[in-house]
Design a protein around this nucleic acid. Sequence first.
DNA 1: ATACTTAGTGTTGTTTTTACACTTTTGATT
DNA 2: AATCAAAAGTGTAAAAACAACACTAAGTAT
Lengths: 245, 245
Amino acid sequence: MTRQISQYLSVDCVLFGYNGLELEVLIVDRTLNDTDSGELIINDCTLTGNHVYEDEPIEDAANRVLFDLTGLDNVFLEQFKTFAHPNRLKKPNDQLWLKSTGRDPEARIITVGFYSLVATDKVKLQWKGRNVRWVPVSEVGELAFDHNLILEEALRTLQTRIKYEPITFELLPDKFTLTQLQNVYEAIWGIELDKRNFRKKVARMKYLIQLDEKQTGVAHKPARLYVFSRDVYDKTKKELFDFTI
Amino acid sequence: MTRQISQYLSVDCVLFGYNGLELEVLIVDRTLNDTDSGELIINDCTLTGNHVYEDEPIEDAANRVLFDLTGLDNVFLEQFKTFAHPNRLKKPNDQLWLKSTGRDPEARIITVGFYSLVATDKVKLQWKGRNVRWVPVSEVGELAFDHNLILEEALRTLQTRIKYEPITFELLPDKFTLTQLQNVYEAIWGIELDKRNFRKKVARMKYLIQLDEKQTGVAHKPARLYVFSRDVYDKTKKELFDFTI
DNA sequence: ATACTTAGTGTTGTTTTTACACTTTTGATT
DNA sequence: AATCAAAAGTGTAAAAACAACACTAAGTAT
């Protein structure tokens, strides 16, 4: 009994990473060869998406995509928007892609957009033999389907969400320095922040725990390392859902 | 040529209103009679949702539901989450509903959740002869399908969103008093706010314009009326996307 | 005239924000 | 051993925002 694939529902995961310098997004190269001539007919880039099995919740499908890619479970993952425009897959190349995977090119395919944050150095990437690579968000070119739109919305969501929720450390190693943390905010917002004010602000966040450890192997004064404590965060969040408008 | 309905895609609109006292949500009573005996077999309540036409963007479908209900165009409307669990419509009553509208009860039906804010006194409600009524959110009982879950998520989204975006006046008449505005926040959050601090805070919001008008027909000191200026808001929003974490 | 009801207002102490520049600590180089 | 390079780490003062708190004003109803 093989598992049935939904013919009209898919998930796309906008997988954000951080290389110490820029915000990156995971891009898949997809090539399609003509079945007869073997000639290359399409060479497109896309976000990492996938089908959903008929009996599979969409959150599970998104997690499956992430697990297949990164080998990681428990990656930060959040649904942000659903894309269902009737013409979203009606460009000629889109239609070829659908046909090549046995889909009905007339069907209205709905995709639920998730975004995800991973520490790029935590993972060894692989995906079904396809070439996947990190691309700085600012250098992403034209993507197939409506994936440029999806990326744009995901980025907007991320930029807003980090104002109110401490999720940026998901892009960093478990132990990180305050400068690294500041760099993440700067990379996501594309602006510079004041170092002293930034540090005063994070000093108030009880869930950022200073360790008795320092950076090693750097050719300058080594920075102190910090970890994020989910326990402390959950506790303070429960105490204080900030109601002031 | 009749317009085709999508067999697997729907929208649900969580329509929030405010009665001057409590936050309310629009609920539809649905009854189903046995085709043979005419006997009432189901009497369920649901949120206001509908099918999506095959050639219709989901935003249009959601706006159509709102227009059919309220006669209003340009109502505040925002997509907040998509519900696609494979078992979301597998309860016995859900299956009866699907059959009664000619749907395949086996199909996996995806619903995109929108929420919407309307000033209840702006609208005369009607919906295809069905009984629709405002119910205080705190008094909503068991709903059919997964609509209790959808309502819960919509409310959570609303509670969060009003912290950062001025959308509360959508629940009020065009001209409103500061007390009314404060009451809306209190109703949505279920807490009380300090009147003086609240007024100091809104005084800083340049997009709340004080009119040279006062309330009439009240048996006490009449309050000044205010309007929301979208122009001013859009301008200040562009100037200041608040980057501080 | 009086009572009732909601509108509207100010102060003080505390916390947060913003703007801004120099010293410290390490490894690398000579 | 001395110097250099590079990033870490730190404080202050003025302005703004926040939090707690109670009385007077202005209109209708009787």
